[in-house]
C-alpha cells in the first residue's frame, strides 16, 4: 500500500486544482491546519470554495487562515457560520473583499454546517432541522412539518479536500485529537474525498494506537505530514506571546 505519510506540506497539497472545495478544520486555534493553509497559499490554486467556522480573526500577528487565501486572490466563495465579526464594530480581514463583491459567501448556522458535512460523509444527501426556521436564512426554501414542528431542508456538503490538524496518528491514518482540537475535524475528514492531516506528534507505526481510542478512522484519511518544530512548523502561541 502506498504510504499516507508525506515529507512536506508542499507535496501534500501539490495536486490541489483550481476550483476545489476545501474544508478547513479548527475552532479558534485548536485544530486549525496552519501549515497546510500556508502551503496552499504558496501553491496558489485559485477559484477555491473554502468551508470553515470562520474566515479568521483580526488578531496580530496574523496566523494563516481562510482570509489569507482570500487576500491572495485564491477564493471564489466562503461557506462559514461567521461572515462578519461578532462585534459589529470589528472589521475582519475578510470583510472588505466580501463587501466589494470580490468573494461570495454562504452563511450557515454552526450546527447545520457540521451536520451538512457529517451527512455528506455518511452518504445522506439531505436532512431536516429546526434551526433557522422563521429567519431570513430560510426565506424561499423548502420546509416540512414533522411531529407538528416546522423543519428546514438542508443539503449535504461534500468536500474535495479537508485540511485538519490532529495530535497523534499512526501510519494507517488513524487519528487522535486532543481536547477541543477535535471540533469540525472528524466531520470534515468524513465529508472529503481527500483528507490531509498535519500531525503534532511523530507519526506512529500502524497498530500503535489503542483501537478504542481512535477518533477518526484511517479510512477517512489519505495524507499526513508531521508538523516540524517552530519556527519551521507553525504552532499556536499563547495570547501574551501573540501580542509581542
Amino acid at each position: 500500500m502506498r504510504s499516507k505519510t508525506f515529507g512536506s506540506f508542499a507535496e501534500a497539497v501539490a495536486d490541489i486544482p483550481d476550483g476545489a472545495v476545501i474544508g478547513i478544520g479548527g475552532f479558534a486555534a485548536p485544530g486549525t491546519p496552519y501549515n497546510l493553509l500556508k502551503a496552499l497559499r504558496e501553491r496558489g490554486a485559485k477559484g477555491l470554495t473554502c468551508v470553515g467556522n470562520t474566515t479568521g480573526g483580526a488578531h496580530q500577528p496574523r496566523m494563516p487562515d481562510i482570509a489569507s487565501l482570500v487576500e491572495n486572490g485564491q477564493v471564489r466563495k466562503v461557506i462559514a457560520s461567521f461572515t462578519a465579526a461578532t462585534r459589529p464594530t470589528d472589521v475582519l480581514p475578510f470583510t472588505k473583499y466580501y463587501e466589494s463583491g470580490e468573494v461570495e459567501a454562504e452563511l450557515v448556522p454552526q450546527g447545520t454546517l457540521a451536520e451538512r458535512m457529517r451527512a455528506a460523509g455518511a452518504g445522506i444527501p439531505a436532512f431536516y432541522t429546526p434551526t433557522a426556521v422563521g429567519t431570513e436564512l430560510a426565506e424561499g426554501r423548502e420546509t416540512r412539518v414533522f411531529n407538528g414542528r416546522e423543519m428546514l431542508l438542508e443539503y449535504a456538503l461534500p468536500l474535495d479536500y479537508a485540511f485538519v490538524r490532529a495530535w497523534r496518528a499512526d501510519a494507517s491514518g488513524n487519528l487522535v485529537f486532543r481536547l477541543t482540537q477535535r471540533n469540525f475535524c472528524p466531520v470534515m475528514a468524513m465529508a472529503a474525498k481527500v483528507c490531509i492531516v498535519e500531525v503534532e506528534e511523530d507519526i506512529l507505526p500502524a497498530g500503535a494506537l489503542d483501537p478504542d481510542a481512535v477518533h477518526t478512522s484511517g479510512i477517512f484519511v489519505q495524507r499526513m505530514v508531521k508538523v516540524p518544530a517552530a519556527p519551521e512548523g507553525i504552532w499556536a502561541v499563547r495570547r501574551e506571546e501573540r501580542k509581542k
Binding site: S81, F82, T86, P88, L107, P109, Q110, G111, T131, L137
Partner: peptide, 15 residues
Amino acid sequence: QKGGGIGGAMDLAAC
C-alpha cells in the same frame, strides 16, 4: 451589514 455572525446561536435558540 452584509453577512453576519451566527455561530451556534440559531441552533441553540431553536432547540
